[in-house]
Design a protein around this nucleic acid. Structure first.
Lengths: 153, 153
DNA sequence: ACTGAAAGACGTCGAAT
DNA sequence: ATTCGACGTCTTTCAGT
């Protein structure tokens, strides 16, 4: 098992802020030359520390004005029913995040849609088709204060 | 104001899945040559549709085993107190997301830490220093079912 | 607005230390 | 494990349609 050292962590911190940065710039920041920087990044990728490289889009410009956190409780808590729910919910593209949580509810969904009408449609046509949902409670996002994909390292 | 057409949307869908894809590959997918693909991407960047290019890291490998959703209610709801809270909370690196929400609480924080001990430390030393918090309720993540940065377009 | 090709920059690899 | 240098590929630009 591979453990990143301080230089690796420095590279990861830079890359999760801006993946466009060139190897040459990273080499300057770490006082190394291209090759070791390149090899370190490849090693971090091979070992699963770097999962993916993506662009982040502006959801408002693309019409996705509404985020809703939807708390869901299942009717029963058997393994089969849980697995089925996970499979169904994962396939819904409006559900960008889903967590199994502690407390009064079983799952927390982050749902991204155009507007309130689209959310109503989501609840009726998408969530409505998912079996064994006992209850659901929606919390509406009025303002996005902070959104970061950075892991605090 | 610029509005993306179907080809632009196709490019955006690809790029938010994988920003490593080459312009040549995107050109093949859209039956275009390099130049228009390159120009379209630059235009989408200039117009703010593409905000950022980042790598996504594996939080578990980096020791961030615990995510907590923390619901916060302020003591008072004046503009000054709200602004101050936003400023304070935004500066905390463990708070990766923060939303102003409807319902019994005012804000929902997504907090990422190593473990329960680190969360206790966060609540006492970081959240504890933020003024005007009336009450806070923590929901612990037991399992991450889905996490995607993709905007559903 | 797109094609095709040319120029330049960058990622990538091998030899050497 | 790092440096240097060379090669190949991709981004980027430009003339032409």
């Amino acid at each position: 098992m591979y453990t990143p050292d301080d230089i690796d962590l420095k590279l990861l911190r830079q890359l999760q802020k801006n993946a466009n940065i060139t190897i040459k710039e990273l080499a300057n920041l770490t006082n190394l030359s291209n090759t070791p920087v390149h090899e370190r990044i490849k090693k971090l990728e091979r070992n699963g520390y770097i999962k993916q490289q993506v662009v982040l889009l502006n959801r408002n410009l693309l019409g996705k004005k509404l985020i809703v956190f939807c708390n869901v409780k299942l009717k029963e808590h058997t393994k089969e029913i849980g697995n089925r729910f996970v499979k169904d919910i994962t396939s819904l593209k409006q559900v960008t995040e889903c967590y199994n949580i502690s407390g009064d509810f079983d799952f927390l969904l982050k749902v991204m849609v155009d507007d309130m009408e689209a959310y109503q449609d989501f609840v009726l046509n998408d969530l409505g088709k998912v079996k064994n949902i006992g209850s659901a409670h929606s919390t509406f996002v009025m303002g996005e204060i902070k959104y970061s994909t950075e892991i605090p390292i």
